[in-house]
Simulated scan of single mutants.
Amino acid sequence: MRTERTHTETRGGTEAGSTALRLDAVTKVYGRNGRGVKALDSVGVDIARGSYTAVMGPSGSGKSTFLHCAAGLDQPTSGRTWIGDTELTGMNETQLTKLRRQRIGFVFQAFNLINSLSVRQNVELPLRLAGEHLDKHWLEEILARVGLGGRASHRPSELSGGQQQRVAIARALITRPDVIFGDEPTGALDTVTAREVLSLLRSCVDDTRQTVVMVTHDPVAASYADTVLFLADGRLVGRMDDPTADRVADRMTRLGAWA
């Protein structure tokens, strides 16, 4: 059963320090000379710490651009973004790279593991790259939490797809990030394995107050979240708290060109 918590999209309703992620009037235009494509159009949202948010919308609605701008992988054309109290807008690439390594975790559809490294070495990698101290007790706790305590010395090729995605989640957790971003994290998995991974992400929120923001096209995946944000034509057009798969699927039929 889900832990009850408060979410807000308005800055006036958040307590100091309770916001994990903020976008303020973010617009992203690709292209120039009057031929640009507006992928995001004045999107504003606050996402609370310790919450699980799914981002959904039709193809071309701006979901991936939302994630890229929110995570500092791309700079908005206009508007401002924050991770916690740190504003990303105006940071150079060196500063953004450091911030992503230290304060953001990523879980993608492609597991992005290094085949020549063991499970343990893959999970350690963000700390190694950042030149930070490795807390071995924390590493063991993370591996146990994702169900890989007995497979730390295995290579990715010796694991199932679901186990590889668990490695990716452990890697995302190792730096104790402010936010974990998931980009279709179950898109390459079968239904049973996908539910296991979604349950693991859910437990990260419920058990350790981690913040998860997940882009997905799947109403069942979205139903694991506390809140679903709906995008259409680059705009934030709706929000659903305590979603169910049926309610999300119904709302998806009434977005953008399908409205």
Score class of each variant (00 low, 15 high):
His7Ser: 14
Ser18Ile: 13
Thr27Ser: 11
Gln109Asp: 07
Val55Asp: 04
Gly238Lys: 12
Leu117Gln: 10
Ala20Ser: 05
Ile142Gly: 02
Ser199Arg: 04
Tyr224Glu: 03
Gln210Phe: 03
Gln121Lys: 13
Leu255Arg: 06
Ser42Ala: 14
Ala222Val: 00
Gly187Ser: 07
Arg251Val: 15
Leu148Pro: 02
Asp74Gln: 07
Thr211Phe: 00
Val146Gly: 05
Leu159Arg: 04
Asp24Asn: 09
Thr175Arg: 14
Asp206Thr: 00
Gly17Pro: 02
Val55Ile: 09
Leu96His: 01
Arg171Thr: 08
Gly161Gln: 10
Thr94Val: 12
Gly150Met: 10
Lys98Ala: 03
Ala130Thr: 02
Ala71Gly: 04
Arg35His: 15
Asp250Glu: 05
Arg32Gly: 14
Arg22Val: 03
Thr81Leu: 15
Lys98Arg: 04
Gln102Ala: 13
Arg171Asn: 09
Ala170Gly: 03
Ser78Leu: 14
Pro185Leu: 05
Arg155Thr: 09
Glu184Gln: 05
Met1Asn: 13
Gln165Gly: 04
Arg49Phe: 07
Leu134Pro: 08
His7Asp: 13
Asp190Ala: 05
His217Lys: 06
Arg176Gly: 05
Asn112Trp: 00
Pro76Phe: 06
Met240Phe: 02
Thr3Leu: 15
Lys28Tyr: 07
Leu73Asp: 06
Arg209Asp: 10
Glu15Phe: 13
Thr175Ala: 15
Ala249Phe: 09
Arg254Lys: 14
Leu200Ala: 05
Ile47Ser: 03
Ile174Asp: 08
Thr227Lys: 11
Leu127Asn: 11
Glu141Arg: 13
Pro185Arg: 01
Val26Lys: 03
Arg155Val: 12
Ser78Tyr: 07
Ser153Ile: 10
Glu184Val: 05
Gln121Thr: 14
Ile169Phe: 11
Ser199Asn: 04
Arg145Gln: 13
Gly50Gln: 12
Gly50Val: 11
Asp85His: 07
Pro243Val: 03
Asp250Ser: 03
Val37Gln: 15
Thr253Leu: 09
Met252Asn: 06
Ala188Gly: 08
Ala168Lys: 01
Thr53Arg: 10
Asp218Phe: 01
Arg100Met: 02
Leu129His: 08
Asn92Ser: 04
Ala225Cys: 09
Gly36Asn: 12
Asp24Glu: 14
His217Val: 08
Leu173Lys: 02
Thr193Ser: 07
Pro58Phe: 10
Val197Gln: 01
Gly44Arg: 01
Thr191His: 06
Ile169Leu: 14
Thr3Val: 15
Thr186Pro: 00
Ser51Asp: 13
Ala16Trp: 04
Glu9Ile: 14
Cys69Ile: 11
Ala249Asn: 12
Met214Arg: 05
Glu184Lys: 08
Asn112Cys: 03
Thr19Cys: 13
Thr186Ala: 02
Arg101Tyr: 05
Leu113Lys: 00
Ser157Asp: 08
Thr253Tyr: 05
